[in-house]
Every structure is written in structure tokens, then in C-alpha cells.
Amino acid sequence: MITAKIRKISTVVEEIHQEIGKEISPTTRRAAAIAVIENPFAGKYNEDLEGLMVIGEELGKLLGERAVAALGIEPSQAEGYGKGAIVGENGELEHAAAILHPRLGGPLRVAVEKGAALVPSSKKMGGLGSPLDVPLGHKDAAYVRSHFDAMEVRINDAPRANEILVAIVVTDSGRPLPRVGGLEAKDAKGEDGLR
């Protein structure tokens, strides 16, 4: 039973075939799963944000699974992830924090199998059509440089004043043409979440 009142869910899959004229094979792919929910605390200050933390846990599972399904991969094939939220004008920035930080990560990590690394995040207040650049990193080793990236997400009719837009992005690859050095995915141990 989901307690979040969801108005809509959108998934986007981006597949890159060419970058600056060079063929990318296999294609690099990333998927965003985005939910637009009612903000139960819009319009007034609430000291206790437990209600939003519960919603964060629900959406970690729902959106994590949707993003993996949209890529059509096994959870173990997910390589990168990120999360973000845009709070409509009658809310406060802390509402995004309550959804994203305490409990969303656990079920997301189940959806992508493992996930030793911190889930990079971004948040802001915004209106209809506001774009959010969701930061991305390797799911098991934050220092893997080829997977540093961001995906722009945007829904033209959200968030309304009393809504929150919550996004999870999952990738099955890094950037299309990585060549700036740093730790490579094949050298990552994936134990401490960093290397």
C-alpha cells in the first residue's frame, strides 16, 4: 500500500548511438523514473517530516524498479545512479531532503543490486517545467570517473504549488566516450563505496 498520492509517473530512456560523429557500440543508456506526488505538508511548517520519509522509502522501490525495468536489464547490470527532487512553491526545501535522504536509498539499492556508493543528489524549489540536473555516479565506487555525469529531467506540468517531483536515474553505462583518466570501473573494488 502506497501512502504517497501520485498524480503521474513518467519514465524516460535515453540511448546514445553517436557522439561527435563516433559510433557508440554498445549504446550508452540511462533511464529516469519520475513521480509527481502531492506534498502533504504544503502551505504550513511541520516540525515532524516522518510522512515524507515514508514516501521516500516507497518511491525508492517504485522508481528504482521502474528505471531498471525501463532499461530492460537485470538489477546487477545497473552501473550508475542518482536522485533528485523539485519542491513546488508551497513547500520547503527540507521536504525534498526528507524524501531523498533518510530512506529512499535502501530500496533503491535492492532494485539495482548492491549500491555501495552514496547516491548523488540534487534538489531545489521550482515551478511547472523546471528542469533538474540529476547528478550521476558509479553505484559501487564513487571515484569511478567515467560514470560522473548528470541527466536533465523535466515535466512540463509539474510540480504544481502543492506537489513534489521526485526522480531516480539508473544507467547501464558511463559517459559515451570517457577518456579523462581516473579510476576505471574494471579496477573498482566496490567495498567501501569509494574505490
Binding site: K8, T11, V12, V13, E15
Partner: peptide
């Protein structure tokens, strides 16, 4: 026909 990238998006609307 040279394709650089594709995107697919699916939206489920429950209420407005």
C-alpha cells in the same frame, strides 16, 4: 539515416 540518439518516454497519469 544516421541516428545520434533516441529517447523514449512513457507517462502514467492517475489524476489531475
Amino acid at each position: 539515416v544516421i541516428v545520434r540518439k533516441t529517447i523514449v518516454s512513457v507517462e502514467d497519469i492517475f489524476h489531475e
